[in-house]
Design a protein around this nucleic acid. Sequence first.
DNA 1: CATCAGGGCCCTG
DNA 2: CAGGGCCCTGAT
Length: 326
Amino acid sequence: MNKPVPLKKKSVLEFTPKTPFCFDATMHKPDHFPSGDNEWQPGVRWQTMLWKGEALGLKLENRGTAARPGFTVSIWSKGELSENYLDSLTAEIDYRYHLQADLSSFNRRFNTGALVPIIRKWNGMRPISYGSLYEYLIIAIVLQNATLRRSVNMMQTLFEQYGTLLSYDGKELFCFWSPETIEDVTEQDLRGLKIGYRAKSIKRVTGAFVKGEINEDGLRAKTLNEQRQAILKLYGIGPASVGYILFDVFHQWDELAYISPWEQKIYSRLFLGKDTDYPASMQELLDFFSSHFGGYRMLAVHYFWEDLFWKRKNRKILWLEELIRL
DNA sequence: CATCAGGGCCCTG
DNA sequence: CAGGGCCCTGAT
């Protein structure tokens, strides 16, 4: 069994995101599957983070409003954290959570039409990856060709096997493993965790990071197409996964080139009012998004999407329940 | 009980 | 460029 590693509170960092900023809709995505590395309640997110080899327990707490944003991040760790370390951590959080993103031009662009009430509700919501590129890739692989429940189970098993259970602030949460720590794990070992053929993808993606064939830092400075090519080269990563990654990890708000079948059904109903049994074709949907949301295609869709799943949190939406199949 | 598709992707023909 | 196969699970 996993014995939790107790962490001690070491420091508090303050962040001032660019206005507007929506803390809760950025810190919680109701469409994400629950995962053992985080927890959320209004105004607070607990999130583990592996940064420069150090397993951290973070607690992010809202201290502001949409118009006057601000939040603190309390950091629990095992060892002392140097000034330099905290500086790099600050910069990393700033990037991952896309705090300097300016959403005001998006808001101005869509100041008429169906997005108005949604933007009013979630003004300043950012798309986000709470983890590293490597970690997001693992999640993407676990999502593939599985029902949600199975994805949840696979992720949990992987955490139990290779993650580090941390204990801080009264929570017990798993921290991700580094590529190096599972470098020597065999494909058979991974298959033993009932993740099926995904074992091969995890093995090869991990290898690419260990060998330095892919580098997140470097990719951040590259163009959209260079990023896309580099990620697609990874074994087991195709058009669906790369789309999520370009959007969430690399902040490519206009990236929307592929729609998976389950999203196709939901989009058809949401945007075109079509029966989910007779969804619009992917091309038809892509054309619709281009003509309506050009410049911010995926971001606009994200706002509709998150709004839908926030509504579902409060009151189940029947047609949606049938499509997401927990 | 058996069958089947699933929040894809690779590989083959 | 379309379509079969892949791991395992829960739904039917």
